[in-house]
């Protein structure tokens, strides 16, 4: 029997990614184009959708060429159903609908967050980690229990990446390659710590108050030279990451897990990876930091998850149901492809 191959389309935010993967997990192609806006600005829904629209055809062709495949070699088409920004999501979904009818292939609608986790498990070979999912739109601490990826803790307002992006905009950092990357580089040169609001409520975190606090005295700090941009980036990173590691550790203690996996764009940050590694090593576990190429939104992870779903018998999504959902929660998906593993939820007496 020939290997089954899926193509995945991701466009939930400012990155358009198309990836092709086999059932053995070999990534045959994973191409991407990022919509980058000038410093001091962010990406807007309409413009982002337009960007995706302009590049969809070219990238699809490129992915097929890289993988040396014809459309007839594919088994199924996978696309991001959500969560994400509506207009970019719709653009991609409509394109996939069209392809499905031209190529006569089934469609699988995929949850973006779940696909980050599945790609992380595939790449790092970690079987049952507690997952810290940190990106521009999401901040969640997730563990697998009773057939679903359960959210143990999450942000109660803005996502960590959103907090970083907005601060980068405030201090006019470049959006190339990403605002978060540039904050990380500045933070390396900072050393003076400004105490920021540290908001952890049980396993939940909050960042909006912290951002307002930073913005309030930003001008004053920079003008008087009391704190440099570098110092502020340093303080921001140290505070926010300490909060994230703390809630991850709490979730690990709660479910009795030893391994931790970081996924999502902010997971590329080396300081976050170092802090996580220190915490996890002290607990006698292993950290599975992800490769940059997979941490960032991409098509291969959508293809990988869609193929897992397809092969485990999830029926393809009928064309009239290939809709998108901006708020498609991680814990709504029945993870039917993972049957064996389960945490003992009774252990902690909660």
């Amino acid at each position: 029997m020939t290997k089954r191959i899926a193509i995945g389309f991701e466009g939930s935010a400012n990155k358009l990614g198309i990836g092709i993967i086999t059932e053995d997990g070999d990534i045959l192609a994973n191409v991407r184009d990022t919509f980058i806006t000038p410093p001091g600005t962010g990406f807007l829904p309409r413009e982002t959708a337009l960007h995706h629209n302009q590049h969809l055809y070219r990238l699809t062709k490129l992915a097929l060429e890289e993988a040396k495949l014809k459309p007839s070699d594919l088994t199924c088409l996978c696309y991001t159903k959500g969560p994400g920004i509506a207009m970019p999501l719709i653009t991609v979904a409509v394109f996939v609908r069209t392809l499905a009818q031209m190529w006569k292939l089934p469609i699988i609608a995929v949850n973006h967050c779940v696909s980050h986790i599945e790609m992380g498990r595939l790449v790092t070979k970690s079987e049952n980690p507690v997952v810290l999912y940190v990106s521009g739109g999401n901040t969640q601490v997730i563990a697998f229990a009773e057939g679903k990826y359960r959210i143990f803790g999450e942000t109660i307002d803005i996502a960590v990446g959103n907090c970083f992006d907005r601060f980068a905009r405030d201090i006019h950092l470049s959006n190339d390659p990403s605002p978060g990357y540039n904050i990380e580089q500045l933070a390396k040169k900072g050393s003076k710590y400004l105490a920021l609001p540290y908001v952890v409520k049980g396993m939940d975190v909050s960042f909006s108050g912290l951002l307002s606090f930073l913005e309030k005295d930003l001008k004053k700090h920079l003008e008087t030279g009391e704190y440099s941009k570098e110092d502020l980036c340093f303080s921001l990173q140290e505070t926010v990451f300490a909060m994230l590691i703390e809630v991850t550790e709490r979730a690990m203690a709660h479910v009795g897990a030893t391994d931790a996996l970081i996924v999502g764009g902010v997971g590329c940050n080396l300081r976050l990876q170092d802090m996580m590694s220190e915490m996890v090593t002290q607990r006698g576990g292993r950290i599975c930091a992800m490769d940059d190429r997979y941490c960032i939104d991409n098509g291969a992870m959508i293809a990988q998850t869609g193929l897992l779903m397809y092969l485990s018998g999830v029926p393809p999504t009928p064309i009239e149901e290939t809709i998108i959902r901006q708020r498609f929660r991680t814990d709504e998906v029945d993870v039917v492809w993972r049957k064996d593993e389960n945490y003992d939820m009774q252990g902690e007496g909660m």
């Binding site: 710590y193 140290e238 505070t239 300490a242 590691i245 703390e246 170092d274 802090m275 996580m276």
Partner: peptide, 12 residues
């Protein structure tokens, strides 16, 4: 907690 900045850790 050695992962976080000492002054933040002490304060918390």
């Amino acid at each position: 907690k050695t992962y976080r900045l000492p002054q933040l850790d002490t304060k918390l």
